[in-house]
Write a protein that binds this DNA or RNA. Structure first.
Lengths: 246, 246
DNA sequence: GGTGGTAACTTATCATACAACTTATCGGTC
DNA sequence: GACCGATAAGTTGTATGATAAGTTACCACC
């Protein structure tokens, strides 16, 4: 098998010259499990077989299965094997698992679900930001918003700035858990064309207008308006780029 | 160090089902990192030193560091070491990390934050459950609620049934991600006395009454009332058991 | 003073061996 | 035939030693 490349996903700082071999194995097996290639309840091939499949040593295989267990995908029992767990055990926010879910035929169910989670978490965060705003926060948020106006011709750059805009609001809200959850969703889902779509200039203009409205509400200290503006923004932005007819 | 589980001391049966050694190492190191014993940016002791500290082989240490990296606590770089990452990289929903956060001096900040997350996610789930309720769901939810009435004398049993009650609602709502997040919080935080407190009979009576109100709203198909009842329940239940004066 | 090479330390990977656990099978016993 | 214990085979868990590869710091050299 030995599908090497990709080292994907993690934009993590430590850039290695050689990607760890275990990463490829984990990616491959995680994808196979999430897409039901290995049904829950069944056992993965034994370590020795996996060694041959991926042409690596048992050290690497053990590392991979440890990572899979950490993601809640499998559970190993000495003398029994490495059994695939039910979806209810999966760490759904894990980047690799998210990526796998986006490739399933029922991906739209998960995408809609993620948007709902974002609404549930980000609207209260916008409210909280409106309540807790300091002068320093005001300057930072305003400055960033104004810099975004210059990126309306570059969809990719605007998307990155978009995430940063939301992230600033999350920081102001001081909601560490909500921020961690949404950041996970955003940073990893962005790579998926299913999630981020292919925005046109008109889409970016509409998005930017929505950002301005959120900014206004937060600066006015109007918690309710901030939540409403955020809800509108997320809902309408998703309705513009949601894949149709699946 | 070597904080191994207690050994039965008897010579004959060499304790069956011995827990993996790596688990103890992971627990120990994760706790040390979360409680800032190892500050972010610094490197963990090298593998050889850790072997001596925990009296295990490099195999186990390697597995432990893999698990820690999977939790977002550390990042290993060949030739450099295993460096502790900033809190923004941590997987805050991980059971071990949650447990560590609950032992910090600023634990109350995280506990309040978790309650807020639960409110943000569970209220819409209650609404959704009220909208999607089927006859089968009705029977299951009602049956479970009635069985809980008999557990009001056993705080521990009622707490378990409490979680199950919420879980049934989550299932009905069909919000897979919200369910996964809240389930993580609940199942792991329950062990913490800081989170679950020490409920008295009067507390359980009040909680049960709130459960009945939620049940009524959902069965009536009143989404708005269900969300309101859920919000009331979570808020007041927390205000009853929240640690004071920290 | 700058430069390049080298030594020392680190993680990454491999190979091998053995221990511990689980299951199935094959006996023998009643 | 039903029950029960020993055994064998397969699996993960752990230990050990060796080698490869990446990083840093130091030191001789120009």
């Amino acid at each position: 098998m030995s599908n090497l490349p990709s080292v994907p996903t993690t934009s993590a700082p430590p850039r290695r010259n050689r990607p760890p071999l275990a990463a490829a194995v984990v990616q491959n097996l995680a994808m196979a499990i999430v897409t039901k290639e290995y049904p829950s309840g069944t056992a993965l091939p034994p370590a020795g077989t996996l060694c041959e499949m991926f042409e690596v040593s048992r050290t690497v295989i053990r590392e991979a299965t440890t990572a899979l267990a950490e993601k809640g995908l499998v559970s190993t029992r000495q003398g029994w094997g490495t059994v695939v767990l039910d979806q209810s055990h999966w760490n759904l926010l894990d980047p690799l698992i998210l990526d796998g879910l986006f490739r399933r035929h029922d991906r739209l169910r998960f995408l809609d679900n993620l948007i709902q989670i974002r609404i549930n978490l980000e609207c209260p965060m916008a409210s909280s930001a409106a309540d807790r705003l300091t002068e320093e926060d005001t300057a930072r948020l305003t400055e960033h918003l104004e810099s975004m106006a210059g990126l309306l011709d570059d969809a990719e750059a605007y998307a990155a700035a978009d995430i940063a805009f939301h992230n600033i609001i999350h920081q102001i809200s001081q909601d560490a858990f909500g921020r961690a959850i949404v950041a996970n969703i955003q940073s990893k889902a962005l790579n998926s064309a299913q999630y981020s779509g292919n925005p046109k200039r008109a889409d970016l203009d509409a998005t930017h207008a929505a950002h301005i409205r959120i900014h206004e509400a937060i600066l006015a200290g109007d918690a309710e308006a901030a939540a409403a503006a955020m809800r509108n923004h997320i809902t309408q932005s998703w309705s513009r780029r949601r894949p149709r007819g699946e």
